[in-house]
């Protein structure tokens, strides 16, 4: 079993732990572990820029957002959940894992034969600034929309009469 597969296994185990954790804070931290594992996989794929983004934004910023949201809500305010469904998760995951091993893996192997090489290797800068320049406009407008949403949900308090 290679390092690469072990990283994927780490991400899968952390994902199951994030779903199964009873404590929401632990769940958020496990989600951060999923992000760290994904970023290590990106490094392994020799995609360092995406890995750095993943590590800083997903493992850092999103975890902070989740932890602050958990701290703003009380634990007992959480929904009365049926824990039996969560305890059944390893069983369901095991069934899915076995079924996927027999049905999905041959499909993925067939897909692999369909893979064709891309046109030519270009640098990340060329892709971002020249080929997919329109995406940048979308990203900036999404960021502006996010700021607008947060600003409109939590308006500045006015003096009450």
């Amino acid at each position: 079993m290679t390092y690469h597969t072990l990283l994927f296994l780490l991400v899968a185990v952390a994902a199951v732990a994030a779903v199964m954790a009873r404590n929401l804070l632990l769940s958020a931290l496990m989600l951060a572990l999923v992000s760290v594992g994904a970023s290590l996989i990106l490094f392994d794929f020799q995609a360092p820029w995406a890995a750095v983004f993943e590590l800083s934004v997903c493992a850092g910023l999103i975890t902070v957002l989740f932890v602050s949201a958990v701290s703003l809500i009380r634990h007992e305010a959480g929904a009365a959940e049926n824990r039996a469904r969560f305890y059944a998760m390893p069983l369901v995951m095991g069934i899915v894992a076995i079924a996927a091993w027999f049905y999905a893996v041959p499909y993925f192997e067939a897909l692999e034969n369909w893979a064709r090489l891309g046109a030519r290797p270009v640098s990340l800068g060329t892709v971002i600034w020249n080929i997919r320049r329109f995406d940048l406009l979308g990203q900036v407008s999404m960021l502006a929309a996010g700021v607008f949403v947060v600003n409109s949900i939590f308006p500045r308090r006015k003096k009450q009469k």
Partner: peptide, 14 residues
């Protein structure tokens, strides 16, 4: 797999 890592990275950043 398809040798277009730069494009994949740009999509991931988006």
């Amino acid at each position: 797999k398809t040798g277009s890592l730069a494009l994949a990275q740009a999509l991931i950043i988006t």
